[in-house]
């Protein structure tokens, strides 16, 4: 245990995801030995992120104005929506450069153990966006785990009456890898989901 401010900083850093007590200590002492202007810049970045960053009023991605960069872009198609759990999933899909439609960020997945139900997610907002009928296809890109699958099923049932084309991302073997390195579970699922060529 250190005393005063340095221990406060270690405690705060230790609360961050992926930062253990050892790393927290290392970062804290790095900050202590850094140039005051560098530290000030970091502190400003931290406060500004809470002051300036908002959520897009349409898709709930992170944004710096009312609408996010993607919702403001007139070149993107309004006919396809991709539903994801978190803003970081938007970034991941954007990196592929494959998708030219709009997003909808739910802010999580249905998870009764954590007390998260559809009312805690941006589901009602999605239904409102879909109500005008411009969207023709809904891609459900929630995580391929129990909670993500449940959320996808829930949404699929919910939008079914609207007559949309609803699709789910495929899951299976990683591309460019060797078959022998896939674990039995992934390989077993890929076997189940095999397709005709």
């Amino acid at each position: 245990m250190y005393e005063g401010a340095i221990q406060d900083l270690i405690d705060e850093l230790g609360r961050l995801p992926g930062v253990g007590p050892k790393s927290a200590q290392r970062i804290a002492f790095h900050v202590l030995s850094s140039d005051p202007s560098d530290v000030k810049r970091l502190a400003q970045a931290l406060t500004r992120v809470k002051e300036l960053v908002r959520f897009c009023t349409r898709c709930f991605n992170v944004a710096e104005s009312d609408l996010c960069r993607i919702c403001r872009d007139p070149r993107r198609s309004d006919e396809v929506y991709c539903v994801v759990e978190e803003p970081k999933d938007v970034v991941a899909i954007e990196r592929t450069g494959e998708f030219r439609g709009r997003y909808h960020v739910l802010g999580g997945a249905i998870n009764p153990l954590e007390g998260v139900g559809p009312d805690n997610l941006k589901v009602r907002e999605l239904m409102m966006r879909l109500a005008d009928g411009t969207c023709k296809e809904l891609i459900l890109a929630t995580d391929p785990n129990t909670e993500g699958e449940a959320t996808a099923t829930y949404l699929a049932l919910l939008v079914k009456p609207m007559g949309l084309n609803v699709t789910r991302l495929a899951s299976g073997l990683p591309v460019g890898g060797d078959l022998e390195y896939a674990d039995e579970i992934t390989l077993g699922r890929a076997f189940e989901g095999r397709r005709a060529v």
Binding site: P118, T146, A150
Partner: peptide, 12 residues
């Protein structure tokens, strides 16, 4: 309580 998602858990 909110049981609207129970059908989903049933299918899974």
């Amino acid at each position: 309580g909110d049981l609207s998602t129970l059908d989903v858990w049933d299918t899974h």
